[in-house]
């Protein structure tokens, strides 16, 4: 069954068809939520809320990119989660050791296929990128997550964020600029091919 047929069935209330769509998009949705929120548990909650909300409002989907539509649902769920977090601050992203210090390379970030050294470097790089993403304003972060991490094109990002194309271009340029400045502080973690150029170009 192709995506269009699954969407049409889901619009008629077929939950099994919608669950098939969920299985196809759940990694993308979870990753988007994780990069916007920076927390596993919050990302899980946001992803689940996004899928529930998407099922309830699937009748409003009028064609176009389903990925962009589902991404709009997840970004809305993330904004809700961030608002909730502002009202009730929760525990930090990093798990703590028994001494109460933050673990730089928490176990949950580990990839079993890597050597301990690679794992440590990858964890630290991921941590650094996440740190820089979290330093961005939420609107900029959303755009950069959708465009650069999820690889969506500008039109899809505009549809998912519900902002004009020009705003997407501007936000993306500003976000990249700020990330570039932030990542300069983690130069030693960056692979040689991604080392940033001169200090005073901007």
């Amino acid at each position: 069954m192709d995506e269009t047929s699954l969407i049409q069935s889901a619009q008629k209330g077929d939950l099994d068809a919608f669950n098939t769509l969920i299985l196809h998009y759940q990694d993308t949705v979870f990753n988007t939520a994780l990069r916007i929120l920076g927390d596993d548990d919050m990302a899980e909650d946001a992803a689940q809320e996004a899928f529930i909300s998407a099922f309830r409002s699937i009748s409003s989907f009028r064609g176009g990119s389903f990925k962009a539509w589902i991404m709009r649902t997840v970004t809305n769920a993330c904004y809700d989660e961030l608002r909730r977090q502002k009202r009730r601050p929760t525990t930090p992203l990093e798990p703590e050791t028994s001494d109460g210090e933050e673990m730089d390379s928490p176990k949950w970030m580990a990839d079993p296929n890597m050597t301990p050294s690679e794992k440590s470097e990858a964890d630290e790089l991921e941590h650094a990128i996440q740190h820089c993403l979290e330093a961005l304003p939420t609107d900029f972060r959303t755009v950069v997550v959708l465009a650069d991490i999820q690889g969506m094109d500008y039109t899809e990002v505009a549809a998912a964020s519900k902002v004009p194309l020009g705003t997407i271009k501007s936000r993306l340029a500003r976000a990249r600029l700020r990330l570039r400045e932030c990542l300069r502080g983690f130069e030693e973690l960056l692979p040689a091919s991604f080392r940033l150029e001169g200090e005073n170009t901007l």
Partner: peptide, 11 residues
């Protein structure tokens, strides 16, 4: 390079 770093972020 910045875009490349972001794309390198493991899914």
């Amino acid at each position: 390079a910045t875009r490349g770093i972001l794309r390198k972020l493991p899914a």
